[in-house]
Computed example of a mutant assay.
Amino acid sequence: MSPFGRWYDNAGVRSGPRRRFHDETDDGKVFFPERLVPYLDHEALTSLSPQRRRELTVRHLYQFLLSTAHLETRIVNRAAELIANGRSGLDLPISSKVDAFKVYCDEGYHSLYSLDLADQIARQTGIAVPDWNYGGFVDALAEAGTRLLPHSPNLVPLLQVVVFETLITAVLNEIPIDPTVLTVVRDITRDHAKDEGRHHRYFAKLFHQLWHQLDPSLRGPVAHTLPELITACLTWDIEPVHESLVLAGIDTSVARDVVHDSYSGSAGRERLSDICRATMRVYQSAGVFDVPGATEAFTNRGLPPQA
């Protein structure tokens, strides 16, 4: 059964309200959970004023919203279009292609309301939305795929979208349950998560179809590519972080050190296993770990298969 069976009634783009910003910070609400802002507790930032720390959390929220706008349209919708218009190389029923257009509509709407909320917040707080383009993230993801699958370029966007869409729900589910966060941020993230739950089911099924239609000679290269794509998907684009710190009055070289300490090595990967749990289950059920060397490739990236 399609996860989009009641899409015309339930999808956010069909029935969701426009979320409007109301400043609840006087009631102790925050723009973004500080525990999810890796650099706020860095020793180099201990002398920052409360106002500067507030600016950092606002801009971190902007990063969260703008990355949605860019990545949904530049990664997910690129693949959704290939599927919907029959250009994916997969043998799919027309119902799957119709559903891919539903994904396309959803993602465009997620991008719209993410930018809309950032603009509302900027207008009321006076904290401008920086002109970030997330090219570093998009380029890194593309580079990983083309480097590891140089002879199968058509596979790369499909593998990227499966990774991205099966990971994102875990990230989105954290904010709506945090009562310290502004209501509008919790609401808009909950809206997003509801749609992405359907997308997860769609792309989990799509991966099974892709895997079983894959030429057996390609299963090894694909299995060894997937852990690097996961890592690339969960590697934060650090240039906006650096720029946000500089805007808060931090010296450029100090900002570089803060970013390095907060995002390099194990510091940026502590939550990797939990976030990837559902994605790993998709691969496991499809048979990826039956490929010789696949388990080792994932484990070497800190992604051991689930027991």
Rank of each mutant, 00 (worst) to 15 (best):
N10C: 11
T235F: 08
T225P: 01
V37F: 00
L40Y: 02
P292I: 13
F101C: 03
E296W: 09
L112K: 03
R54L: 12
M1A: 08
H208C: 11
S111H: 04
C233P: 03
H208G: 13
D195R: 02
P221S: 11
T57A: 03
V163L: 04
T183K: 15
F64S: 10
R281S: 07
T125P: 06
F4M: 00
G108Y: 06
D178Y: 09
N77H: 02
C105Y: 06
L92D: 10
G197P: 00
L115F: 12
S264W: 07
F289A: 07
S15M: 12
L66V: 05
L115M: 12
V259Y: 02
P50C: 05
G12H: 14
L182W: 12
A122C: 13
W7N: 02
V98E: 02
L141Q: 14
L155R: 14
R198F: 03
P130H: 01
Q120K: 02
L234R: 03
A144E: 14
L48R: 11
F64R: 02
H110K: 11
R78P: 01
A128L: 09
P216V: 03
T225L: 08
A204Q: 15
I275L: 08
L245S: 12
A122T: 10
P221Q: 12
R87Q: 15
K29A: 08
E107C: 10
Y62L: 10
D139I: 00
D26Y: 07
W132V: 03
